[in-house]
Nucleic acid binder design. Sequence first.
DNA 1: TTTCAGTCAATATA
DNA 2: TATATTGACTGAAA
Length: 405
Amino acid sequence: WLTSLKSSRRARKGAPNSALGQRLFGETILGLTQGSVSDLLARPKPWHKLSLKGREPFVRMQLWLNDPNNVEKLMDMKRMEKKAYMKRRHSSVSDSQSCESSSAGIDYSQGASPQPQHQLKKPRVVLAPEEKEALKRAYQQKPYPSPKTIEELATQLNLKTSTVINWFHNYRSRIRRELFIEEIQAGSQSQAGSSDSPSARSSRAAHSSEGDSCDGVDAEGPPDGKPSGPEADEFSNAAAKSQGGPAEPAFEAGEEALRGARPSERAEPESLEDTDDEGRLRAPRQSSPPAPQRPGDALETLPNSATEGDASTSAASTSVLTGESSYKSKESSEKISSVPSTSSTPASGSQKANSLQSLFGFSEAASSRNTRDSSLRKKKAANLNNIIHRLEKAASREEAVEWEF
DNA sequence: TTTCAGTCAATATA
DNA sequence: TATATTGACTGAAA
């Protein structure tokens, strides 16, 4: 499903309206913009790393999926929208003149408020490739540059300091997320039976500071380090609870979402009944097991990436871009196991599953598109497939009751 | 004050 | 046209 939203870009050419769009789904169901939905789907974070707020959209998805009718409803909505659009278009063609005049009519307001607003709008900064490269280079050397460094960079690149600061913030957090994904991918591959090993995790944590690849960086030992501790605990908890495994990408969702996440908000009282001893909502039992399918299961494969990190570190001294490229190389290095999203869809849920699949039918799309440039895509797809798979499973689960809020 | 997570929204891309 | 990317912003935590 989620994946389809990604793959559909191409698929769509053949089947224009076969899927729900990110925009519609995001705005209608999740209360998010299209960009956010895309981001969310393309780079889901491990569930345990999501904040309460971060879990919210996934909980919404889960709840939404719990009602098979919802998909239909949304499709209807989409159809209606399209109809309305066509209608509008049609009529606007026929009275284009009047339209023009009406748009001119809008212009009437020119003198008034709208215009000034337009003027107030800051143009979006678009960094040139060279600028990005330079920033990346700087990042390699210092992921957490001092204000002074930032100042210098800004001057050198002729950018605002705030732009440089923002760039570093964004870059750090986005790289971090990519790493999460890699972990998940690695996990889904190597996980087969490998149980989580704390040591592996810690090595991961070390690696994940990708800055690590950068010369120590005054050990400003930024907040980055902080996740590692709690993570482990959380991790083992999750593992214990769901015996599935750790860092499951956001969509352990339903489960934990419904558990700790936010009983209060959309709170339907019953939800509270089904809680574990920690007062959290209990996850549906079956959701836990299919170990082999839990992508996040194996953060432990990270040692490898640590090696890569080393490589980049050493290389970094010669080329600032190395870090980046090594980072990319990681992507290409892995093979994706595309999870058959429907494989385990229980018959009971077939209707919904089918609708979902036809709605978003990504598996074919995902498998058909591959090739060179798509290694990243594939990774994402595999990851998302996994999410979707669980989502679907959860959605078609009979005792969804337990998931209710 | 700084960092981060999450998000928006403009823009790029297919 | 739909999705992906990314600079900027907000609010929370430390």
